[in-house]
Design a protein around this nucleic acid. Structure first.
Lengths: 219, 219
DNA sequence: GTCTATAAGTTGATAGAC
DNA sequence: GTCTATCAACTTATAGAC
């Protein structure tokens, strides 16, 4: 028999793993993969270094699990893009969802951005499978809207690139946004203004009449 | 007297510095500041490590000079945004210029993006001064266009954030673009298509009639 | 399952001969 | 101005007591 209890089925294990993942996110976000040290993550998690290796094996495995979780969360808002929906409403709420994520979990976005920036050495396979499949499906929805004359003929894949870039820039490069706006910190009103801007520009760009400014969801 | 010759006024010095800077760009782009090693840069430059320290003092000084040069190049295309210009033409050519830079020097863009991603520890001051001043000037131009009824009332500062994000995503996150499009490498046609998409979406988004697709400049 | 101690390897930076 | 040799510090990962 091992020392691990058989019945609780890994309660402690899972709790500790999540604790370590949560502590690792800001450390990887601020310093990148190489700049982040297991020591710093361990300190943030309130555990000895050795425990991190006990739970995740290596630094790269820990990093990989963090990223895979982010990609999953990241794809969820695309579900609302369905053929039956109104294009303007669906796109506006997708943009709003992405803007809300940028504001709520900027570190997750930054770790992801950093991985892409360096060529996606650990996430490349997932990008070429899961992400590509999902985008192909949603691009088909946009193409259907265009074919039905419900929106202007934009390139669907490139529309997604623009949407991701325009929304995530407020998380990934917020230091640039703050420098230009002269803010030491982005307020809730800054984020609302940013979201209104992106929604309005994109909807008009897609030939869709922007709806009157709607209050943010009670999330 | 020092060993350095007085008359040639640093010809060798400058040539070697530029050689090292050119070699450092792809290394920093691929590995980030911490992942890049002085050994790797020295090898790429074909020089011993010690020479890098002789010319730049420290790794951070080398990195700082590389970034400052990129920021300068990066601001140049904004010069064409002047009140007398036609908004549609000026914005289209600004976007084209940024897209061309993304395609031609992706590594410079990536090093810059990486610096922003980690909070601009070495470039922060320049962002809050030079960048902010330049954007304030160009935002005033956009405001004048709007006041004259020559384009839709978009938020000028946020318009720049969107333009930068939408254009640089093709350099910074090209691995994501390639994954979605199923390309092993982005072709010239891919970049043209991307540029046409961004120009068209933004011009329509700004209430400006997109001009017919113009051939790329002979650059 | 937890933690201390340490091994094994890497890196930025410098000394000093040429 | 160039380059070899080397140091001091740091980091990942593991061994082994508890």
């Amino acid at each position: 028999m091992k020392a691990a209890p058989a019945e609780p089925a890994g309660h402690i294990r899972q709790a500790n793993r999540e604790r370590i993942l949560a502590a690792a996110e800001p450390v990887f976000a601020r310093a990148g993969f190489n700049g982040a040290t297991m020591g710093a993550i361990a300190e943030a998690a309130g555990l000895p270094k050795a425990n991190l290796h006990y739970y995740f094996g290596s630094k790269q495995d820990l990093y990989r699990e963090l990223l895979a979780g982010t990609l999953r969360d990241w794809l969820v808002p695309m579900d609302s893009l369905v053929p039956e929906a109104d294009p303007a409403t669906a796109l506006a709420s997708y943009i709003q969802a992405k803007m809300t994520m940028s504001a709520a979990r900027p570190d997750a976005s930054r770790v992801f951005a950093n991985e892409l920036l360096h060529g996606a050495p650990v996430l490349g396979d997932l990008m070429r499978t899961e992400l590509r499949t999902m985008v192909a499906k949603k691009a088909a929805v946009v193409r259907a809207w265009i074919a039905a004359g419900r929106m202007a003929p934009v390139d669907p894949e490139h529309l997604f690139f623009t949407l991701w870039a325009a929304t995530q820039t407020y998380a990934d490069f917020d230091v640039q946004v703050r420098a230009v706006l002269g803010r030491s910190k982005l307020t809730r009103r800054d984020h609302e203004r940013a979201a209104a801007h992106v929604v309005s520009l994109v909807l008009r760009g897609c030939g869709l009449v922007p709806p009157p400014p709607q209050p943010p969801p009670p999330t």
